[in-house]
Amino acid sequence: MHASARQREILHRLLVDGYVEAKELAASLGVDTSTIRRDLDALARTGQVQRTHGGARPVLGRAVDVPYATKKSERVKEKVAIAVAAASRVRNGDTVILDSGSTTYEVAVALRHKKRLTVITNDLRIGKFVATLPDVRLLVTGGELLGSVFTLVGERAVSFVEDYNADWTFLGADAIDPVAGITNTNTLEVPLKRAMIAAGDTTVVVVDSSKFGQRALAKVATLDEVDLILTDAELPEDAAQAYGDHVVRAPITTPSPGEETTAEAK
Rank of each mutant, 00 (worst) to 15 (best):
47 G>C: 07
4 S>F: 04
12 H>S: 15
262 T>I: 10
217 L>H: 14
21 E>D: 11
112 R>W: 06
128 K>R: 12
12 H>D: 14
65 D>Q: 09
160 F>Q: 01
254 T>G: 09
229 I>K: 12
35 T>F: 01
186 N>R: 12
78 E>Q: 15
238 D>R: 15
205 V>C: 09
138 L>A: 12
9 E>L: 12
147 G>A: 13
34 S>H: 09
170 F>Y: 09
2 H>G: 09
92 N>C: 05
66 V>A: 00
29 L>R: 12
123 D>L: 06
82 I>M: 09
212 F>M: 10
240 A>I: 15
109 V>S: 02
232 D>S: 06
92 N>H: 12
136 V>R: 05
251 P>R: 15
128 K>A: 15
79 K>A: 00
246 H>G: 03
186 N>P: 04
237 E>Q: 14
15 L>D: 15
138 L>T: 07
159 S>M: 08
205 V>R: 11
164 Y>V: 06
6 R>Y: 05
193 K>Q: 09
212 F>D: 05
155 E>R: 08
80 V>R: 08
20 V>I: 13
186 N>G: 13
125 R>W: 07
237 E>G: 07
232 D>K: 11
132 T>D: 14
171 L>V: 05
209 S>I: 14
126 I>Q: 01
173 A>C: 07
228 L>M: 13
190 V>K: 01
227 D>C: 02
37 R>P: 03
140 V>C: 08
241 Q>P: 04
139 L>G: 13
164 Y>Q: 10
225 E>Q: 11
98 L>T: 03
51 R>V: 01
170 F>G: 02
237 E>F: 11
60 L>Y: 12
223 L>V: 04
75 R>F: 03
95 T>S: 14
222 T>D: 14
56 A>I: 05
139 L>W: 12
259 E>Q: 14
112 R>T: 06
190 V>N: 02
92 N>P: 08
154 G>Y: 04
231 T>P: 03
161 V>Y: 03
94 D>P: 00
26 A>F: 06
227 D>Y: 10
54 G>A: 06
62 R>Q: 14
200 G>Y: 04
263 A>T: 10
9 E>C: 08
84 V>L: 15
37 R>F: 09
24 E>Y: 10
37 R>K: 10
254 T>P: 09
194 R>E: 04
58 P>R: 12
93 G>I: 00
53 H>I: 03
253 T>M: 09
36 I>S: 02
213 G>N: 08
24 E>A: 13
251 P>E: 13
209 S>M: 12
107 V>H: 01
125 R>Q: 06
177 D>Y: 03
125 R>D: 07
87 A>L: 11
55 G>D: 03
206 V>W: 07
230 L>E: 01
86 A>Y: 04
111 L>T: 05
186 N>K: 09
148 S>W: 08
98 L>C: 02
244 G>Q: 14
203 T>C: 05
196 M>Y: 01
164 Y>A: 10
246 H>R: 15
1 M>D: 01
21 E>G: 02
228 L>C: 12
